[in-house]
């Protein structure tokens, strides 16, 4: 019999592979064609979460906000309470740093679980598996967005009480924010791909990840200022995948300056590196996921 009336020939050939990349261009095309699946999946996941607990989403914003307060107290206490001059600046630095860090952190932790929890979808449908961590990154971004107005609100309130502190008003440097946020998202997504793959092979990766994220937070320029590092100590800033972007974030939001060239280079290098390495690791093994879930 010849094919049906609305039949559009779509020949797919499935052949053996050995931990190597499938054809990259068709993969990316398929990924792009199905992007609305990732967007809707994230939307529906949020909806499901909201239906389960109405406060769920609010907590995701409240959590870094409250943490920022705790860390702020901690930092000012350690410093001996010298808060009159730069207390608000410190708070602003911690706040925007934590919010940005949590964006990356949410991308990574949610993305790392997306494959192991997406079992049924993976066993039932063939689609580029990278869509699942991508969907988690979209959710993380949507959690990140409302933290910006929260930040601005806190600063405006702070300005009323401490009018002398110099946290910049809108400056031209803020035009860099979308680019920096995108770089944070790409780095987070790339690392999510890496950890999602690891989590398929080693199911306790997630537990480990919660400690890694905590240590990572302390190693990042959030509770301390990038300018506190001198000489070869600055390596610590650039060896950290989120170091350059967080440093750039502080530069924009707190100093009102354009990020430095080395921050740009560092941020781009980490974003590209995470995406390429994470992407290779993930895509070359994703056809193995269905047997290991």
């Amino acid at each position: 019999m010849s094919p049906s009336a609305d039949f559009q020939p779509k020949i797919q050939v499935f052949e053996p592979h050995r931990a190597s990349l499938p054809p990259v261009i068709p993969y990316l095309k398929e990924f792009w064609n199905r992007r609305s699946f990732a967007i809707e999946l994230s939307r529906f996941a949020d909806k499901a979460e909201y239906l389960e607990s109405k406060l769920g989403k609010v907590w995701l914003v409240l959590n870094p906000l409250l943490l920022a307060m705790v860390y702020f107290l901690l930092v000012t206490v350690i410093r001996g309470g010298n808060t009159k001059t730069n207390g608000l600046t410190t708070l602003a630095h911690i706040l925007i740093g934590l919010f940005t860090f949590y964006f990356a952190s949410n991308c990574i932790t949610a993305g790392a679980q997306s494959i192991t929890t997406g079992g049924r979808l993976i066993l039932n449908q063939a689609f580029p598996r990278a869509l699942l961590p991508f969907s988690s990154s979209i959710s993380a971004f949507q959690t990140f967005l409302p933290t910006i107005p929260v930040y601005i609100f806190v600063i405006i309130i702070g300005k009323i009480f401490f009018p002398a502190t110099q946290v910049p008003r809108l400056a031209i440097s803020f035009l860099w924010v979308p680019l920096i946020v995108a770089l944070v998202g790409i780095t987070g997504f790339g690392l999510a791909l890496l950890f999602a793959t690891m989590n398929v092979y080693f199911r306790d990766t997630n537990k480990l990840l919660s400690y890694v994220m905590r240590i990572w937070l302390y190693l990042s320029p959030i509770l301390w200022l990038p300018s506190m590092l001198h000489g070869w100590h600055r390596i610590a800033l650039y060896a950290n995948p989120l170091g350059p972007v967080l440093s750039a974030t502080s530069n924009i939001w707190i100093e009102g300056k354009t990020p430095t060239l080395s921050e740009f280079i560092g941020a781009f290098a980490w974003a590209a590196g995470s995406l390429l390495i994470g992407g290779y690791f993930f895509v070359s093994r994703e056809r193995d996921f269905a047997v290991r879930i």
Binding site: P9, V13, F14, L121, N124
Partner: peptide
């Protein structure tokens, strides 16, 4: 197209819809 072959190959011509044992996701 969910599980890759170890040897040989599969050629499929057309759009596939699946309903496999575990139910949809």
């Amino acid at each position: 197209g969910i599980l890759p072959p170890t040897e040989g190959r599969i050629i499929v011509n057309g759009k596939i819809s699946t309903l496999l044992a575990l139910g949809v996701g």
